[in-house]
Nucleic acid binder design. Structure first.
Length: 483
DNA sequence: TGAAATGTTGGGGCG
DNA sequence: ACGCCCCAACATTTC
Protein backbone atom coordinates (compact mmCIF):
# COMPACT_ATOMS: atom_id res chain seq x y z
CA UNK A 1 0.00 0.00 0.00
CA UNK A 2 1.28 3.44 -0.85
CA UNK A 3 0.07 6.73 0.48
CA UNK A 4 0.56 10.22 -0.88
CA UNK A 5 0.54 11.67 2.61
CA UNK A 6 0.66 9.98 6.01
CA UNK A 7 0.47 11.41 9.50
CA UNK A 8 2.96 10.19 12.08
CA UNK A 9 1.36 10.73 15.45
CA UNK A 10 4.06 11.23 18.11
CA UNK A 11 3.22 10.27 21.67
CA UNK A 12 5.87 8.81 23.97
CA UNK A 13 8.44 8.63 21.20
CA UNK A 14 9.77 12.18 20.93
CA UNK A 15 12.72 11.58 18.63
CA UNK A 16 13.58 11.17 14.97
CA UNK A 17 16.14 8.35 15.18
CA UNK A 18 15.26 4.67 15.61
CA UNK A 19 11.56 5.53 15.33
CA UNK A 20 9.56 2.63 13.96
CA UNK A 21 6.36 4.45 13.00
CA UNK A 22 8.34 7.17 11.24
CA UNK A 23 10.45 4.63 9.35
CA UNK A 24 7.43 2.59 8.27
CA UNK A 25 5.40 5.63 7.30
CA UNK A 26 8.30 6.91 5.23
CA UNK A 27 8.63 3.54 3.48
CA UNK A 28 4.99 3.61 2.46
CA UNK A 29 4.38 7.28 1.83
CA UNK A 30 5.49 10.16 -0.36
CA UNK A 31 5.04 12.78 2.31
CA UNK A 32 5.01 12.73 6.09
CA UNK A 33 3.16 15.02 8.48
CA UNK A 34 4.37 14.91 12.07
CA UNK A 35 1.83 15.62 14.79
CA UNK A 36 1.45 15.77 18.53
CA UNK A 37 -1.74 16.24 20.51
CA UNK A 38 -1.61 17.71 24.00
CA UNK A 39 -4.11 16.11 26.34
CA UNK A 40 -4.96 18.75 28.93
CA UNK A 41 -6.86 16.27 31.07
CA UNK A 42 -3.82 14.00 31.36
CA UNK A 43 -1.43 16.91 31.83
CA UNK A 44 -3.47 18.21 34.76
CA UNK A 45 -4.18 14.78 36.24
CA UNK A 46 -2.57 13.13 39.23
CA UNK A 47 -0.91 10.64 36.89
CA UNK A 48 1.88 13.06 36.00
CA UNK A 49 3.94 15.62 37.86
CA UNK A 50 6.29 18.50 37.20
CA UNK A 51 9.43 16.40 36.46
CA UNK A 52 7.71 14.36 33.76
CA UNK A 53 5.87 17.27 32.21
CA UNK A 54 9.01 19.42 32.17
CA UNK A 55 11.06 16.63 30.65
CA UNK A 56 8.38 15.94 28.09
CA UNK A 57 8.04 19.56 27.02
CA UNK A 58 11.84 19.88 26.71
CA UNK A 59 11.72 16.91 24.39
CA UNK A 60 8.77 18.26 22.46
CA UNK A 61 10.56 21.54 21.89
CA UNK A 62 13.66 19.77 20.66
CA UNK A 63 11.64 17.54 18.35
CA UNK A 64 9.96 20.60 16.88
CA UNK A 65 13.36 22.26 16.47
CA UNK A 66 14.74 19.22 14.68
CA UNK A 67 11.78 19.14 12.31
CA UNK A 68 12.03 22.86 11.64
CA UNK A 69 15.72 22.47 10.89
CA UNK A 70 14.64 20.06 8.16
CA UNK A 71 12.24 22.61 6.69
CA UNK A 72 9.18 20.99 8.21
CA UNK A 73 7.44 21.35 11.57
CA UNK A 74 5.58 19.51 14.26
CA UNK A 75 1.84 20.08 14.19
CA UNK A 76 0.99 20.62 17.84
CA UNK A 77 -2.66 20.51 18.75
CA UNK A 78 -4.55 20.34 22.00
CA UNK A 79 -7.71 18.50 22.93
CA UNK A 80 -9.37 15.27 21.92
CA UNK A 81 -6.90 13.27 19.85
CA UNK A 82 -9.55 11.72 17.59
CA UNK A 83 -11.07 15.00 16.47
CA UNK A 84 -7.76 16.87 16.28
CA UNK A 85 -6.23 14.18 14.08
CA UNK A 86 -9.31 14.03 11.86
CA UNK A 87 -9.03 17.77 11.34
CA UNK A 88 -5.34 17.49 10.57
CA UNK A 89 -5.99 14.70 8.08
CA UNK A 90 -8.51 16.87 6.27
CA UNK A 91 -6.15 19.88 6.26
CA UNK A 92 -3.18 17.90 5.00
CA UNK A 93 -4.95 15.43 2.73
CA UNK A 94 -3.45 12.49 4.64
CA UNK A 95 -4.85 9.05 3.95
CA UNK A 96 -2.96 7.08 6.60
CA UNK A 97 -1.98 7.41 10.23
CA UNK A 98 1.07 5.78 11.82
CA UNK A 99 1.79 5.60 15.52
CA UNK A 100 3.74 3.51 17.98
CA UNK A 101 1.83 1.24 20.36
CA UNK A 102 1.30 2.34 23.95
CA UNK A 103 0.21 -0.41 26.33
CA UNK A 104 -1.28 1.75 29.05
CA UNK A 105 -5.00 0.99 29.33
CA UNK A 106 -6.09 4.63 28.96
CA UNK A 107 -3.83 5.07 25.95
CA UNK A 108 -5.03 1.89 24.25
CA UNK A 109 -8.68 2.82 24.63
CA UNK A 110 -7.95 6.30 23.30
CA UNK A 111 -6.12 4.76 20.35
CA UNK A 112 -9.10 2.55 19.56
CA UNK A 113 -11.33 5.64 19.48
CA UNK A 114 -8.87 7.46 17.24
CA UNK A 115 -8.66 4.51 14.85
CA UNK A 116 -12.45 4.25 14.67
CA UNK A 117 -12.82 7.96 14.05
CA UNK A 118 -10.22 8.05 11.29
CA UNK A 119 -11.45 4.94 9.53
CA UNK A 120 -14.85 6.59 9.16
CA UNK A 121 -13.01 9.17 7.05
CA UNK A 122 -11.34 6.39 5.05
CA UNK A 123 -7.87 6.65 6.61
CA UNK A 124 -5.80 3.57 7.21
CA UNK A 125 -4.32 3.28 10.67
CA UNK A 126 -1.06 1.46 11.41
CA UNK A 127 0.25 0.81 14.89
CA UNK A 128 3.87 -0.22 15.38
CA UNK A 129 5.88 -1.98 18.06
CA UNK A 130 8.43 0.59 19.16
CA UNK A 131 8.28 1.43 22.86
CA UNK A 132 9.32 -2.10 23.86
CA UNK A 133 11.93 -4.24 22.13
CA UNK A 134 9.43 -7.02 21.53
CA UNK A 135 5.71 -6.37 21.33
CA UNK A 136 3.86 -7.19 24.51
CA UNK A 137 2.05 -10.05 22.80
CA UNK A 138 5.05 -11.43 20.90
CA UNK A 139 6.81 -13.30 23.70
CA UNK A 140 4.54 -16.16 24.75
CA UNK A 141 5.07 -19.52 26.37
CA UNK A 142 4.83 -22.70 24.28
CA UNK A 143 1.12 -22.92 25.17
CA UNK A 144 0.59 -19.41 23.74
CA UNK A 145 -0.17 -17.86 27.13
CA UNK A 146 1.86 -14.95 28.49
CA UNK A 147 4.79 -15.44 30.82
CA UNK A 148 4.17 -14.40 34.40
CA UNK A 149 7.61 -15.26 35.81
CA UNK A 150 10.57 -13.11 34.92
CA UNK A 151 13.39 -15.66 34.69
CA UNK A 152 11.88 -17.88 31.98
CA UNK A 153 10.65 -14.76 30.22
CA UNK A 154 14.19 -13.42 30.17
CA UNK A 155 15.58 -16.72 28.90
CA UNK A 156 13.08 -16.75 26.05
CA UNK A 157 13.75 -13.08 25.30
CA UNK A 158 17.49 -13.69 25.04
CA UNK A 159 17.02 -16.78 22.85
CA UNK A 160 14.76 -14.83 20.58
CA UNK A 161 17.30 -12.06 20.41
CA UNK A 162 19.69 -14.49 18.69
CA UNK A 163 17.26 -15.47 15.95
CA UNK A 164 15.07 -12.39 15.72
CA UNK A 165 17.04 -9.27 16.63
CA UNK A 166 15.44 -5.86 16.18
CA UNK A 167 18.24 -3.50 15.24
CA UNK A 168 17.62 0.24 15.34
CA UNK A 169 15.55 1.40 12.39
CA UNK A 170 16.73 4.11 10.03
CA UNK A 171 14.16 6.83 10.43
CA UNK A 172 16.40 9.88 10.12
CA UNK A 173 17.43 9.62 6.48
CA UNK A 174 13.85 8.99 5.45
CA UNK A 175 12.85 12.19 7.16
CA UNK A 176 13.50 14.10 3.92
CA UNK A 177 9.93 13.19 3.02
CA UNK A 178 8.68 15.57 5.69
CA UNK A 179 6.12 18.06 4.43
CA UNK A 180 6.99 21.73 4.30
CA UNK A 181 6.13 23.76 7.36
CA UNK A 182 3.46 25.69 5.47
CA UNK A 183 1.36 22.60 4.77
CA UNK A 184 0.40 22.03 8.38
CA UNK A 185 -1.93 24.91 9.07
CA UNK A 186 -2.28 26.31 12.57
CA UNK A 187 0.01 24.87 15.19
CA UNK A 188 0.47 25.64 18.87
CA UNK A 189 3.64 26.65 20.65
CA UNK A 190 5.26 24.13 22.94
CA UNK A 191 3.70 25.04 26.28
CA UNK A 192 5.43 25.69 29.56
CA UNK A 193 4.70 23.22 32.38
CA UNK A 194 3.16 26.11 34.33
CA UNK A 195 0.29 26.16 31.81
CA UNK A 196 -0.86 22.90 33.35
CA UNK A 197 -0.07 23.72 36.95
CA UNK A 198 3.44 22.26 37.13
CA UNK A 199 6.47 24.14 38.34
CA UNK A 200 9.75 23.53 36.55
CA UNK A 201 12.88 23.14 38.66
CA UNK A 202 16.49 23.50 37.64
CA UNK A 203 17.18 20.28 39.53
CA UNK A 204 15.08 18.15 37.18
CA UNK A 205 16.76 16.14 34.47
CA UNK A 206 16.26 17.81 31.10
CA UNK A 207 14.72 16.02 28.14
CA UNK A 208 15.55 15.86 24.47
CA UNK A 209 16.96 13.50 21.90
CA UNK A 210 20.46 15.01 21.91
CA UNK A 211 20.70 14.73 25.68
CA UNK A 212 19.57 11.13 25.45
CA UNK A 213 22.31 10.32 22.97
CA UNK A 214 24.87 12.05 25.17
CA UNK A 215 23.63 10.10 28.21
CA UNK A 216 23.98 6.82 26.33
CA UNK A 217 27.46 7.71 25.08
CA UNK A 218 28.55 8.86 28.53
CA UNK A 219 27.24 5.69 30.15
CA UNK A 220 28.89 3.39 27.63
CA UNK A 221 32.03 5.45 27.56
CA UNK A 222 32.60 5.29 31.28
CA UNK A 223 30.19 4.04 33.95
CA UNK A 224 29.40 0.78 32.20
CA UNK A 225 32.82 -0.60 33.17
CA UNK A 226 31.83 -0.68 36.82
CA UNK A 227 28.06 -0.79 36.49
CA UNK A 228 27.75 -4.39 37.69
CA UNK A 229 29.61 -3.73 40.91
CA UNK A 230 28.57 -0.14 41.60
CA UNK A 231 24.98 -0.02 40.43
CA UNK A 232 23.73 -0.43 44.00
CA UNK A 233 25.83 2.40 45.38
CA UNK A 234 23.66 5.52 45.51
CA UNK A 235 26.58 7.82 46.34
CA UNK A 236 28.62 6.72 43.32
CA UNK A 237 25.53 6.63 41.11
CA UNK A 238 26.93 4.62 38.23
CA UNK A 239 23.52 4.21 36.64
CA UNK A 240 22.63 5.24 33.10
CA UNK A 241 20.01 7.91 33.82
CA UNK A 242 18.33 6.80 30.62
CA UNK A 243 15.01 5.88 32.22
CA UNK A 244 13.35 9.29 31.67
CA UNK A 245 14.55 9.16 28.06
CA UNK A 246 13.08 5.71 27.58
CA UNK A 247 9.86 6.91 29.19
CA UNK A 248 9.49 9.91 26.88
CA UNK A 249 10.97 8.06 23.95
CA UNK A 250 13.86 10.45 23.41
CA UNK A 251 15.91 7.34 22.81
CA UNK A 252 14.81 4.12 21.12
CA UNK A 253 14.91 0.85 23.02
CA UNK A 254 16.57 -0.88 20.05
CA UNK A 255 19.43 1.60 20.20
CA UNK A 256 19.94 0.81 23.88
CA UNK A 257 19.67 -2.94 23.45
CA UNK A 258 22.10 -2.93 20.56
CA UNK A 259 24.65 -0.97 22.56
CA UNK A 260 24.33 -3.48 25.39
CA UNK A 261 24.51 -6.51 23.08
CA UNK A 262 27.58 -5.20 21.26
CA UNK A 263 29.45 -4.74 24.51
CA UNK A 264 28.16 -7.91 26.19
CA UNK A 265 29.71 -9.96 23.40
CA UNK A 266 33.01 -8.60 24.64
CA UNK A 267 33.37 -11.81 26.63
CA UNK A 268 34.52 -11.96 30.20
CA UNK A 269 35.50 -8.33 30.68
CA UNK A 270 33.99 -6.27 33.48
CA UNK A 271 32.32 -4.08 30.87
CA UNK A 272 30.89 -7.14 29.14
CA UNK A 273 29.46 -8.44 32.41
CA UNK A 274 28.06 -4.99 33.19
CA UNK A 275 26.44 -4.76 29.79
CA UNK A 276 24.67 -8.06 30.43
CA UNK A 277 23.43 -6.86 33.83
CA UNK A 278 22.18 -3.63 32.29
CA UNK A 279 20.51 -5.54 29.47
CA UNK A 280 18.72 -7.49 32.19
CA UNK A 281 17.23 -4.21 33.42
CA UNK A 282 15.98 -3.43 29.91
CA UNK A 283 14.40 -6.91 29.81
CA UNK A 284 12.67 -6.16 33.13
CA UNK A 285 11.23 -3.10 31.38
CA UNK A 286 9.92 -5.22 28.48
CA UNK A 287 8.59 -7.74 31.01
CA UNK A 288 6.59 -5.20 32.97
CA UNK A 289 5.10 -3.77 29.76
CA UNK A 290 4.24 -7.31 28.75
CA UNK A 291 2.52 -7.84 32.11
CA UNK A 292 0.57 -4.59 31.85
CA UNK A 293 -0.58 -5.35 28.30
CA UNK A 294 -1.61 -8.93 29.05
CA UNK A 295 -3.03 -8.33 32.53
CA UNK A 296 -4.36 -4.78 32.35
CA UNK A 297 -6.11 -5.14 35.71
CA UNK A 298 -2.71 -4.55 37.36
CA UNK A 299 -3.16 -0.86 36.56
CA UNK A 300 -5.72 -0.58 39.36
CA UNK A 301 -5.62 -3.87 41.29
CA UNK A 302 -3.06 -6.33 42.58
CA UNK A 303 -1.87 -8.92 40.06
CA UNK A 304 -2.55 -11.62 42.66
CA UNK A 305 -6.31 -11.76 43.22
CA UNK A 306 -6.01 -12.80 46.87
CA UNK A 307 -4.21 -9.56 47.67
CA UNK A 308 -7.46 -7.65 47.09
CA UNK A 309 -8.47 -8.82 50.56
CA UNK A 310 -5.64 -6.92 52.23
CA UNK A 311 -6.98 -4.05 54.33
CA UNK A 312 -4.20 -1.51 54.32
CA UNK A 313 -3.95 1.15 56.98
CA UNK A 314 -5.33 4.60 56.24
CA UNK A 315 -2.79 7.25 55.25
CA UNK A 316 -2.16 9.82 57.97
CA UNK A 317 0.83 11.34 59.70
CA UNK A 318 3.09 8.39 58.81
CA UNK A 319 2.19 8.75 55.14
CA UNK A 320 3.08 12.44 55.29
CA UNK A 321 6.36 11.59 57.00
CA UNK A 322 7.22 9.08 54.27
CA UNK A 323 6.44 11.60 51.51
CA UNK A 324 8.49 14.36 53.12
CA UNK A 325 11.40 12.18 54.21
CA UNK A 326 10.74 12.49 57.95
CA UNK A 327 10.50 8.83 58.94
CA UNK A 328 13.56 8.94 61.19
CA UNK A 329 15.26 6.26 59.08
CA UNK A 330 18.06 8.14 57.31
CA UNK A 331 18.31 5.97 54.19
CA UNK A 332 14.56 6.27 53.63
CA UNK A 333 14.54 10.00 54.25
CA UNK A 334 17.62 10.62 52.11
CA UNK A 335 15.99 8.69 49.28
CA UNK A 336 12.76 10.66 49.52
CA UNK A 337 14.73 13.90 49.65
CA UNK A 338 16.46 12.87 46.45
CA UNK A 339 13.11 12.13 44.82
CA UNK A 340 11.49 15.36 45.94
CA UNK A 341 14.47 17.46 44.88
CA UNK A 342 15.65 15.90 41.65
CA UNK A 343 12.62 14.06 40.27
CA UNK A 344 14.68 10.89 40.33
CA UNK A 345 15.59 8.19 42.80
CA UNK A 346 18.25 5.52 42.61
CA UNK A 347 16.65 2.16 41.83
CA UNK A 348 18.00 0.40 44.90
CA UNK A 349 16.54 3.15 47.06
CA UNK A 350 13.17 2.74 45.38
CA UNK A 351 13.05 -0.81 46.71
CA UNK A 352 13.98 0.34 50.19
CA UNK A 353 11.37 3.10 50.44
CA UNK A 354 8.76 0.83 48.84
CA UNK A 355 9.44 -1.90 51.36
CA UNK A 356 9.22 0.67 54.13
CA UNK A 357 5.86 2.02 52.94
CA UNK A 358 4.24 -1.32 52.23
CA UNK A 359 5.75 -3.47 55.00
CA UNK A 360 6.80 -1.20 57.86
CA UNK A 361 3.85 1.18 57.50
CA UNK A 362 1.33 -1.23 55.93
CA UNK A 363 0.10 1.45 53.55
CA UNK A 364 -1.40 0.70 50.13
CA UNK A 365 1.29 0.33 47.47
CA UNK A 366 -0.95 2.37 45.16
CA UNK A 367 -0.31 5.46 47.31
CA UNK A 368 3.41 5.05 46.74
CA UNK A 369 2.90 4.23 43.09
CA UNK A 370 0.91 7.42 42.57
CA UNK A 371 3.46 9.48 44.51
CA UNK A 372 6.26 8.16 42.29
CA UNK A 373 4.27 8.97 39.14
CA UNK A 374 3.91 12.53 40.34
CA UNK A 375 7.52 12.98 41.38
CA UNK A 376 9.66 10.89 39.03
CA UNK A 377 10.78 12.07 35.62
CA UNK A 378 10.70 8.43 34.52
CA UNK A 379 7.37 7.53 36.15
CA UNK A 380 6.01 5.00 33.74
CA UNK A 381 2.85 3.04 34.52
CA UNK A 382 4.21 -0.36 33.48
CA UNK A 383 7.60 -0.26 35.19
CA UNK A 384 6.45 1.75 38.18
CA UNK A 385 3.48 -0.48 38.85
CA UNK A 386 5.62 -3.56 38.33
CA UNK A 387 8.20 -2.32 40.80
CA UNK A 388 5.63 -1.40 43.43
CA UNK A 389 3.74 -4.64 43.13
CA UNK A 390 7.03 -6.50 43.33
CA UNK A 391 7.90 -4.74 46.57
CA UNK A 392 4.38 -5.02 47.97
CA UNK A 393 4.35 -8.80 47.30
CA UNK A 394 1.11 -8.40 45.32
CA UNK A 395 2.65 -8.73 41.89
CA UNK A 396 3.66 -11.35 39.42
CA UNK A 397 6.90 -13.03 40.42
CA UNK A 398 6.99 -10.68 43.40
CA UNK A 399 9.08 -10.66 46.51
CA UNK A 400 7.48 -13.07 49.03
CA UNK A 401 5.42 -11.25 51.66
CA UNK A 402 7.85 -12.13 54.45
CA UNK A 403 10.73 -10.46 52.67
CA UNK A 404 11.02 -7.23 54.61
CA UNK A 405 13.98 -4.95 54.01
CA UNK A 406 15.76 -3.84 57.16
CA UNK A 407 16.41 -0.15 56.43
CA UNK A 408 19.45 -0.06 58.71
CA UNK A 409 21.14 -3.12 57.23
CA UNK A 410 20.35 -1.95 53.71
CA UNK A 411 21.79 1.43 54.56
CA UNK A 412 25.01 -0.07 55.92
CA UNK A 413 25.28 -2.31 52.89
CA UNK A 414 24.74 0.19 50.08
CA UNK A 415 26.03 3.37 51.71
CA UNK A 416 28.71 2.03 54.07
CA UNK A 417 30.38 5.33 54.87
CA UNK A 418 27.11 7.26 54.85
CA UNK A 419 28.22 9.50 51.99
CA UNK A 420 24.82 9.50 50.33
CA UNK A 421 22.93 10.12 53.57
CA UNK A 422 25.22 13.02 54.47
CA UNK A 423 24.82 14.54 51.03
CA UNK A 424 21.03 14.45 51.12
CA UNK A 425 20.54 15.06 54.85
CA UNK A 426 23.01 17.76 55.93
CA UNK A 427 21.52 17.68 59.43
CA UNK A 428 23.19 14.27 59.85
CA UNK A 429 26.50 15.22 58.23
CA UNK A 430 28.35 15.50 61.51
CA UNK A 431 27.30 12.09 62.82
CA UNK A 432 30.20 9.67 62.63
CA UNK A 433 30.43 5.92 62.38
CA UNK A 434 27.35 3.77 62.29
CA UNK A 435 25.11 6.36 63.92
CA UNK A 436 24.51 8.01 60.56
CA UNK A 437 22.42 4.95 59.65
CA UNK A 438 20.53 4.98 62.96
CA UNK A 439 20.81 8.34 64.76
CA UNK A 440 18.86 7.11 67.80
CA UNK A 441 21.78 4.81 68.65
CA UNK A 442 24.14 7.73 69.14
CA UNK A 443 25.52 7.72 72.68
CA UNK A 444 24.06 10.62 74.71
CA UNK A 445 27.49 12.04 75.55
CA UNK A 446 28.56 11.96 71.95
CA UNK A 447 25.29 13.53 70.82
CA UNK A 448 25.77 16.31 73.31
CA UNK A 449 29.33 16.89 72.17
CA UNK A 450 28.06 17.24 68.61
CA UNK A 451 25.19 19.48 69.62
CA UNK A 452 22.82 16.97 68.08
CA UNK A 453 19.45 16.27 69.61
CA UNK A 454 17.08 13.62 68.32
CA UNK A 455 13.60 15.00 67.93
CA UNK A 456 14.92 18.50 67.35
CA UNK A 457 17.58 18.13 64.66
CA UNK A 458 16.24 14.95 63.17
CA UNK A 459 13.05 12.96 63.84
CA UNK A 460 12.82 9.93 66.05
CA UNK A 461 11.94 6.80 64.05
CA UNK A 462 8.19 6.73 63.40
CA UNK A 463 8.09 2.95 63.82
CA UNK A 464 10.30 0.37 65.47
CA UNK A 465 11.49 -1.77 62.57
CA UNK A 466 11.74 -5.05 64.47
CA UNK A 467 8.14 -4.72 65.70
CA UNK A 468 6.96 -3.45 62.33
CA UNK A 469 8.48 -6.46 60.60
CA UNK A 470 6.57 -8.87 62.82
CA UNK A 471 3.39 -6.87 62.33
CA UNK A 472 3.85 -6.99 58.53
CA UNK A 473 4.31 -10.75 58.48
CA UNK A 474 1.19 -11.20 60.61
CA UNK A 475 -0.70 -8.82 58.30
CA UNK A 476 0.16 -10.63 55.08
CA UNK A 477 0.34 -14.24 56.19
CA UNK A 478 -3.41 -14.99 56.41
CA UNK A 479 -3.97 -13.62 52.89
CA UNK A 480 -0.79 -14.45 51.01
CA UNK A 481 0.59 -17.28 53.13
CA UNK A 482 0.40 -21.01 52.26
CA UNK A 483 -2.22 -20.99 49.58
C1' DT B 1 17.04 -8.16 44.28
C1' DG B 2 16.01 -10.16 52.71
C1' DA B 3 16.64 -10.97 57.32
C1' DA B 4 16.31 -13.44 61.57
C1' DA B 5 16.34 -17.70 63.90
C1' DT B 6 18.20 -21.97 64.32
C1' DG B 7 21.55 -25.61 63.34
C1' DT B 8 26.34 -27.27 62.40
C1' DT B 9 31.21 -27.24 62.40
C1' DG B 10 35.76 -26.61 63.81
C1' DG B 11 39.53 -24.08 65.93
C1' DG B 12 41.41 -22.52 70.12
C1' DG B 13 41.56 -21.63 75.15
C1' DC B 14 41.80 -23.92 79.25
C1' DG B 15 41.74 -27.06 83.18
C1' DA C 1 46.94 -35.62 75.36
C1' DC C 2 42.27 -35.08 76.25
C1' DG C 3 37.64 -33.38 76.92
C1' DC C 4 34.92 -29.52 77.51
C1' DC C 5 33.23 -25.13 76.42
C1' DC C 6 32.88 -20.99 73.80
C1' DC C 7 31.98 -18.80 69.77
C1' DA C 8 32.91 -17.25 65.14
C1' DA C 9 31.84 -18.69 60.70
C1' DC C 10 29.05 -20.77 57.75
C1' DA C 11 24.76 -23.38 56.37
C1' DT C 12 19.90 -24.19 56.65
C1' DT C 13 15.36 -23.15 57.87
C1' DT C 14 11.72 -20.08 58.71
C1' DC C 15 8.99 -16.00 58.31
Amino acid sequence: MRYATSIVWFRRDLRLSDHVALARAADASDRIVCAFVLDPELLRSARVGAPIVSFFFDALAELRGALRARGSDLAIMEGDAASELRDLAKRSGATALYYNLDYEPDASSRDVRVAEGLSVDGLEVHSCVDHTYYGAHETLKADRTPYTVFTPYKRRWLERCESDPRPPVDSVSLARKLVGAGALGATLDVPEPEAYGHRRSGNFQKGGERRAKRALDAFFGNAIDTYAERRNDPAADGTSHLSPHLRAGTIGIRTCVQAALDLSRGGGTAAGASARVWLGELIWRDFFHHILANFPHVAHDPFVAAAKQLRYREPGAEWDAWCDGRTGYPIVDAAMRQLNTYGWMHNRLRMIVASFLTKDLLLDYRLGERYFEQHLADGDLASNNGGWQWSASTGTDAAPYFRVFNPILQSEKIDPDGAFIRRMLPELAKLGGKAVHAPWTLAPLEAEALGFRLGRDYPEPIVDHAAARLRAIAFFAPVLGAR
